[in-house]
């Protein structure tokens, strides 16, 4: 295993070192110590490596991730996993606002709570939050799955497109065009798989599915009051 001391060696050296890892690298396990809330840790990775970050992170940890597994042993600042493409990010603590924003693929697991705007504009990423999420989560979410074992804040799924939202607890309020939907066999199957991969102790049957009423896709005069 490779150990990288962020306080000693600095952020630029860290990300350059991690970017240098290719598909065939033998250095597949990395430990980053002294994270101390630094920004942009392990951003833009594109290799099948596992990166363990010791401590809490600042803005944009694991952003644009491809292939790599980034495991944060602490809490994450704003924009964790922003625009991630594939791979896995696991956060042992809480995540600040807009976790997984615009993510296109991969799995983001938050073992604590997520703040506001979790999964905003998500485009294919799967997000599993063991705790609760804040207001305006999944705003304009386009595809992918957002699974919440706790509660959701105000305006969940406002202006939602085709992302699937699964919430086990209460929802403070639904955003425009987001509605409760029937849970079919295919959804239970998706949920069971995500819960298992996220190491989450919950049963698919306990969740409620929310999705788009599809009234806001195109302007229609009959829907004027909903815009």
């Amino acid at each position: 295993m490779q150990t990288f001391d962020l306080a000693e060696q600095g952020l630029r050296a860290l990300n350059q070192t991690l970017h240098a890892q290719k598909d065939s690298t033998n250095q597949t396990a990395w430990d980053i110590v002294n994270a101390k809330g630094s920004h942009a840790i392990a951003v833009g990775l594109d290799a099948p490596i596992e990166v363990n970050v010791r401590g809490s992170t600042g803005y944009y940890c694991g952003g644009m991730n491809k292939q790599a597994t980034v495991h944060i042993h602490g809490s994450a600042g704003p924009g964790v996993g922003e625009n991630m493409m594939s791979g896995t990010i696991i956060i042992e603590g809480d995540a600040s606002q807009y976790a997984g924003a615009t993510g296109r693929g991969g799995l983001l697991v938050i073992k604590g709570n997520a703040s506001s705007r979790c999964g905003i504009s998500m485009k294919g990423i799967d997000i599993v939050v063991h705790g609760s999420i804040g207001h305006m989560s999944a705003f304009m979410a386009q595809s992918g799955n957002l699974v919440v074992l706790g509660d959701a804040g105000d305006a969940l799924g406002d202006s939602l497109y085709e992302a699937r939202l699964f919430v086990r607890g209460s929802v403070k309020s639904l955003g425009a065009d987001c509605v409760k939907k029937e849970m079919r066999a295919e959804h239970l199957e998706i949920l069971a798989d995500l819960l298992e991969r996220a190491d989450a102790d919950a049963k698919p049957e306990e969740f409620t599915r929310y999705g788009s009423a599809r009234k806001l896709y195109n302007f229609h005069i009959d829907n004027a009051s909903a815009y």
């Binding site: 101390k36 809330g37 630094s38 920004h39 600042g58 803005y59 809490s75 600042g77």
Partner: peptide, 11 residues
């Protein structure tokens, strides 16, 4: 009790 705009301020 401490307040910071970012966690970095508290480390």
């Amino acid at each position: 009790v401490a307040f910071g705009s970012e966690y970095r301020a508290l480390v």
